[in-house]
Amino acid sequence: MAIMGLPEEEYFSYGHRACAGCGAATALRLITKAAGRNSILVESTGCIEVVSTPYPETAWKLPWIHGAFENAASIASGIEAALKYSGENTKVIAIGGDGATYDIGFGHLSGAFERGHDFTYICYDNEAYMNTGIQRSGSTPYGAYTTTSPSGKKSIGKEEWKKDLVHILAAHGSPYVANASIGYATDAFKKLKTAIETEGPTFVNLFATCPTGWRSATEKSIEIAKLAVDTGVCPLYEIIDGKHKLGRPKDIDKLKPLEEYLKLQGRYRHLFRPEKNKETIEFMENRVRKNLENLLKYEECGL
């Protein structure tokens, strides 16, 4: 039975200890549904690992393993090789937060992609180290407050742009990489499924709201993730065998104002107090736009 095109069966059980409104928990429901029964999950240390397996309980109904923070891609490599040795045809899906993926596990991820293992790596991207208490990562966006990139008299929050990991992985020659958002869940589900079903190393960056870390209202998690797409901050696109395909935003001249997105999140509050920091917001808007223009150019040129 399918509901909205998604299988009804749950592989990630309630009773998990994620915060109310956790975008990553929704992400994991989408991921496990896309994975299906014949799959093995490899998890990095992080929120989802902690909230899902308080020994002696487990939220999982699939084969699931956690080793350490940085090595999910390497553990997945070993599992994929073991399955090959045993002649088993099971999907291997590594999952990590952005800290595990963009930062500490980056070398492992690059190694596994270069070797060409048949597996999918999915990053639930909530843009900071949330499990340890909202510290800055390579995925934290420009201007965002975190506990290690606080805003202050001399700081607007994080002062560096978010790492473009999707393109870095595409540059490894991956047959399928995609950027998705839980705000467009059916689209995310399709991308996850495509990635999992595509042979070779594939990657999906799945944008997932963290109300605790983003200082946002729990009921707004999906709305924010949708706005991230509609303002162009988190464009939905795929790179299939090296060729871009942009999904949303559909028209870059009709983007929603960035402020609509920023204002829903306490992590950007300093950009509006004591008065609006026009310069910073404009800079962000311009860079978002430039990024979208690049994506469109790639698509137009068949790249």
Partner: peptide, 25 residues
Amino acid sequence: GSEYIRVESEFSAISACLGASATGV
């Protein structure tokens, strides 16, 4: 018949072994 993974670091080597052993080989 062994599968041999030429990993990118020792950290990855032991991690891949962990994964393989956990799979049951």
